[in-house]
Design a protein around this nucleic acid. Structure first.
Length: 602
RNA sequence: UGCCCGAUGGUGUAACGGUAGCACAGCAGACUCUGAAUCUGUUUGUCAUGGUUCAAAUCCAUGUCGGGCAACCA
């Protein structure tokens, strides 16, 4: 195990290998492109989640491993779906996830810059190169909507080539003309308009002469194609709607298929990596690009299977529902698989990257068990978290042979495997708190914590024996009266005694209170929506429990960027709801608990 | 019932015609002033049937199963 704390990040895993990277490596080997250029193109219609993390790690990872760049692009061609709020959230999440790892590969553009126009082979060509490695307020992400002028010009070219036409069919009519997967469609009655008429109509569509849905621009391909996406697909539709980035300048917006390949081309993307559902779109992607006789190298699309994590939901629509229905407190609720939620929960970007590395990239649609995710988190946190003592569910212990009023400072290490993490002192006194679970009046087999007449070691302190159990009228244990072996402190005469159990504790007089939020999986089932089941029926009622814990005093100075392990319990991080003197800790993930598993067995 | 894609232990992946490996999970043990970590050992797998070949997870054929595709969404 390597030694590190929050300030000395763990080494990144070795470079992964998968079918896409193999392809890119081959392209590099044959010198197919001067530079590898990928892109991460989210639509700003929601928050980024675990699934996006996989894509980000893939795209930026490739850029990183092959000396290329990866553009951040907002794929914003549908004004009715997208909002500026999401743009900011996306930028934050991407920056967080790649920080210290692929910052130098992040492709942005000078603020406000749109593609440069060049005349190549007698027709306009557009290019918008990325700037990398210069984070500053003067740069911003790419926006597909910044290319509306260029995409419009490309559409005109397509019309001029006789490869696109204006269609007056309504959405309902078009459905009838489309045919079916096993039955060819029929050509639109407007398919044979003249170039001049198409150009004129297209210009008038742009000018706002027609209402929504009145006309569309369609590619002229093949209504009999077995690939539905090649049956004269719509390239442009009329939408009199304000756009988050272009305002009211347009009432005509390009469809994804038309805008995406051209955006890739304009930015000089070489490898356009997307998820499997776009596989059937690839012929259209290529058709558009090839129909335009473009002078520069064309981008190519590659598809991989998206991440499907178990015990959660990653569909944007469902995520919105969870937020709106107040099942969770917001987009950054630590139980959500959103990057903002994950971050607030205390998971580090590096853990997420390690996870992405471990799950691999294939074309096989699979369900990834959360345990892989959880392992990546534990592995990361175990290396960086500072150890602390805190008691979640306290029970009072009085050491009858320890002088009242006496306090001593005991030395404790901050990390058992990293000396450089330093040490701290723990105040010790006659009255303590220990974990309720660490005492059993009637101990189950193999219980080696505290029991009547039994001994246990207090971490960094003394070995104590339980002499007496005090109960209230209802029979609840309220206090344990114990005696300490005063020679058994670290370095003491009897410190070497073999005691099976070691438990954590805090001094009652010195402990500070902290709100602790115990998070757990949001769903009890691996596939919440299996067979159309309503996810509401499998919500985990214990996904959040809020308690007040007794913490060692040093935790009063907890830092938000730090990670802590409350020994023998779990990993925690300070929540943004903390106030001076009122710390709030989020439980990121519990430690593995072999005892709980064993104790739970019949 | 058209087209496209896929199938390797419980789960996720590697092997690119030449010993089926790794990780997670599980189980057993060692160690332990964290029942954590660490270390050791270990159970379980090439969808099926043919074919090509000295040799097939890998190439071919057929089948089976799973997924995707008929928004003026992305």
């Amino acid at each position: 195990m390597s030694n590190l704390n929050a300030n000395t990040p763990a080494p990144e895993p070795v470079v992964p290998s998968d079918f896409i990277r193999d392809l890119v490596a081959a392209h590099v080997a044959e010198g197919k492109y001067p530079k590898i250029h990928t892109r991460f193109p989210p639509e700003p219609n929601g928050y980024l989640h675990l699934g996006h993390a996989k894509s980000i790690c893939l795209n930026f990872g490739i850029a990183r491993e092959f000396g290329g760049a990866c553009n951040l692009r907002l794929d914003d061609t549908n004004p009715t779906q997208e909002e500026a709020e999401y743009v900011e959230a996306i930028r934050t999440d991407v920056n967080w996830l790649i920080a210290g790892w692929a910052d130098d590969q992040l492709g942005l553009k000078p603020k406000g810059k749109t593609p440069e126009t060049v005349i190549a082979k007698g027709s306009p060509d557009f290019y918008l190169p990325a700037v990398t490695g210069t984070p500053s307020p003067a740069v911003e992400p790419f926006y597909a909507s910044d290319y509306f002028d260029q995409i419009y010009a490309y559409a005109q070219q397509l019309i001029e080539k006789g490869r696109a036409f204006i269609c007056d069919l309504s959405a309902a009519d078009m459905e009838g003309y489309r045919g079916a997967p096993d039955r060819p469609g029929t050509e639109s009655p407007f398919r044979h308009r003249t170039v001049a008429e198409n150009l004129d109509l297209f210009a008038r569509m742009k000018a706002g002469e027609f209402p929504d849905g009145a006309r569309t621009l369609r590619a002229k391909i093949d209504m009999a194609s077995p690939n539905l996406w090649l049956r004269d697909p719509i390239l442009y539709r009329i939408k009199h709607a304000a756009h988050h980035h272009t305002g009211t300048r347009w009432c005509l917006y390009p469809m994804y298929d038309f805008a995406h390949c051209l955006s890739d081309y304009i930015e000089g993307i070489t490898h356009s990596i997307c998820t499997l559902e776009f596989e059937v779109h690839r012929p259209l992607y290529d058709w558009i690009l090839e129909s335009l006789a473009l002078p520069r190298a064309l981008p190519r699309q590659y598809e991989f299977a998206k991440l499907i994590p178990s015990h959660t939901i990653v569909s944007k629509r469902k995520l919105i529902q969870l937020v709106n229905d107040k099942v969770v407190t917001g987009w950054d609720d630590p139980r959500l698989p959103t990057l903002s939620g994950i971050r607030r929960r205390g998971v580090t970007a590096q853990a997420l990257r390690a996870f992405a590395y471990h799950i691999g990239v294939t074309k096989y649609i699979s369900l990834t068990d959360v345990s892989v995710y959880e392992h990546a988190i534990r592995d990361d946190l175990n290396q960086r978290a500072l150890r602390r003592l805190a008691v979640l569910r306290p029970i009072r212990v009085v050491l009858t042979n320890y002088p009242a009023g006496q306090t001593e400072e005991l030395e404790a290490v901050n990390h058992p495997a990293d000396e450089s993490a330093g040490k701290r002192n723990l105040p010790f006194s006659r009255e303590l708190y220990i974990e309720r679970e660490d005492f059993a009046e009637v101990p189950p087999p193999k219980f080696f914590r505290l029991k009547p007449g039994g001994e246990v070691r207090l971490k960094y302190a003394y070995i104590i024996r339980c002499d007496e159990v005090i109960k209230d009228a209802a029979g609840n244990v309220t206090e344990l009266r114990c005696t300490a072996d005063l020679e058994s402190k670290s370095g003491g005469a009897t410190a070497g005694r073999k005691i099976k159990g070691t438990i954590h504790w805090v001094s009652a007089a010195h402990a500070i209170d902290a709100e602790v939020r115990l998070y757990d999986r949001l769903f009890t089932e691996a596939e919440p929506e299996l067979d159309g089941r309503d996810y509401k029926t499998v919500l985990n009622p214990h996904s959040l429990e809020v308690i007040t814990a007794k913490c060692e005093p040093s935790l009063a100075g907890a830092a938000p960027e730090e990670r802590y392990q409350f020994e023998r319990l779990a990993f925690f991080t300070l929540d943004k709801d903390s106030a001076p003197g009122k710390p709030v800790f989020n439980r990121t993930i519990t430690l593995k608990d072999t005892w709980a598993k064993q104790a739970g067995k019949p």
